[in-house]
Amino acid sequence: MENLKKELKEKIIEALNLEDLTPEDIKDDELLFGEGLELDSIDALELIIILDKDYGIKLDDPKKGKKIFESIETMANYINENRSK
Protein backbone atom coordinates (compact mmCIF):
# COMPACT_ATOMS: atom_id res chain seq x y z
CA MET A 1 0.00 0.00 0.00
CA GLU A 2 2.83 2.42 0.82
CA ASN A 3 4.41 1.67 -2.54
CA LEU A 4 1.10 2.39 -4.29
CA LYS A 5 0.77 5.75 -2.52
CA LYS A 6 4.31 6.75 -3.53
CA GLU A 7 3.66 5.63 -7.10
CA LEU A 8 0.42 7.65 -7.19
CA LYS A 9 2.18 10.78 -5.95
CA GLU A 10 4.85 10.42 -8.65
CA LYS A 11 2.22 9.91 -11.35
CA ILE A 12 0.21 12.93 -10.20
CA ILE A 13 3.28 15.16 -10.08
CA GLU A 14 4.22 14.12 -13.61
CA ALA A 15 0.72 14.25 -15.13
CA LEU A 16 -0.18 17.59 -13.58
CA ASN A 17 3.30 19.08 -14.08
CA LEU A 18 3.64 19.97 -10.38
CA GLU A 19 7.33 20.55 -10.94
CA ASP A 20 7.96 22.31 -7.62
CA LEU A 21 6.74 19.30 -5.60
CA THR A 22 8.31 15.97 -4.64
CA PRO A 23 6.34 12.91 -3.44
CA GLU A 24 7.52 13.70 0.09
CA ASP A 25 5.78 17.10 -0.07
CA ILE A 26 2.35 15.50 -0.49
CA LYS A 27 0.85 14.07 2.70
CA ASP A 28 -1.30 10.95 2.39
CA ASP A 29 -4.34 12.63 3.95
CA GLU A 30 -3.84 16.06 2.35
CA LEU A 31 -6.87 17.34 0.41
CA LEU A 32 -6.27 17.28 -3.36
CA PHE A 33 -9.05 19.72 -4.33
CA GLY A 34 -10.22 22.97 -2.79
CA GLU A 35 -7.53 23.34 -0.19
CA GLY A 36 -4.31 21.32 0.04
CA LEU A 37 -2.92 20.83 -3.46
CA GLU A 38 -5.62 23.14 -4.88
CA LEU A 39 -6.28 21.00 -7.95
CA ASP A 40 -9.09 21.98 -10.34
CA SER A 41 -11.58 20.38 -12.73
CA ILE A 42 -9.03 19.86 -15.52
CA ASP A 43 -6.80 18.06 -13.02
CA ALA A 44 -9.77 15.85 -12.13
CA LEU A 45 -9.92 14.71 -15.77
CA GLU A 46 -6.20 13.90 -15.64
CA LEU A 47 -6.76 11.79 -12.50
CA ILE A 48 -9.60 9.89 -14.20
CA ILE A 49 -7.20 9.09 -17.05
CA ILE A 50 -4.56 7.82 -14.58
CA LEU A 51 -7.13 5.47 -13.01
CA ASP A 52 -8.18 4.11 -16.39
CA LYS A 53 -4.79 3.92 -18.13
CA ASP A 54 -2.62 2.66 -15.29
CA TYR A 55 -5.04 0.68 -13.10
CA GLY A 56 -7.82 -0.37 -15.49
CA ILE A 57 -10.53 1.43 -13.51
CA LYS A 58 -13.28 3.17 -15.46
CA LEU A 59 -15.11 5.69 -13.33
CA ASP A 60 -18.69 5.23 -14.56
CA ASP A 61 -20.32 7.31 -11.82
CA PRO A 62 -18.78 10.85 -11.68
CA LYS A 63 -20.45 11.43 -8.28
CA LYS A 64 -18.08 8.89 -6.76
CA GLY A 65 -15.12 11.00 -7.89
CA LYS A 66 -15.47 13.53 -5.10
CA LYS A 67 -14.92 10.86 -2.45
CA ILE A 68 -12.30 8.86 -4.41
CA PHE A 69 -10.17 11.92 -5.21
CA GLU A 70 -10.33 13.40 -1.73
CA SER A 71 -6.71 12.49 -0.92
CA ILE A 72 -3.88 10.12 -1.87
CA GLU A 73 -5.15 7.82 0.91
CA THR A 74 -8.68 7.56 -0.53
CA MET A 75 -7.38 7.16 -4.09
CA ALA A 76 -4.99 4.37 -3.07
CA ASN A 77 -7.74 2.54 -1.17
CA TYR A 78 -10.10 2.71 -4.14
CA ILE A 79 -7.41 1.54 -6.57
CA ASN A 80 -6.45 -1.33 -4.24
CA GLU A 81 -10.03 -2.59 -4.13
CA ASN A 82 -10.95 -2.10 -7.80
CA ARG A 83 -7.84 -2.37 -9.96
CA SER A 84 -7.68 -4.77 -12.92
CA LYS A 85 -4.09 -3.88 -13.91
Binding site: I42, L45, E46
Partner: peptide, 13 residues
Protein backbone atom coordinates in the same frame (compact mmCIF):
# COMPACT_ATOMS: atom_id res chain seq x y z
CA UNK B 1 0.84 5.57 -28.14
CA UNK B 2 -2.55 4.86 -26.52
CA UNK B 3 -4.49 3.98 -29.64
CA UNK B 4 -6.70 7.10 -29.42
CA UNK B 5 -7.63 6.43 -25.78
CA UNK B 6 -6.60 8.19 -22.55
CA UNK B 7 -6.30 11.60 -24.17
CA UNK B 8 -5.26 14.11 -21.57
CA UNK B 9 -7.21 17.41 -21.73
CA UNK B 10 -4.32 19.82 -21.12
CA UNK B 11 -2.32 19.21 -24.34
CA UNK B 12 -5.55 19.44 -26.35
CA UNK B 13 -6.72 22.70 -24.76
Amino acid sequence: DYDEEYLSPTPFI
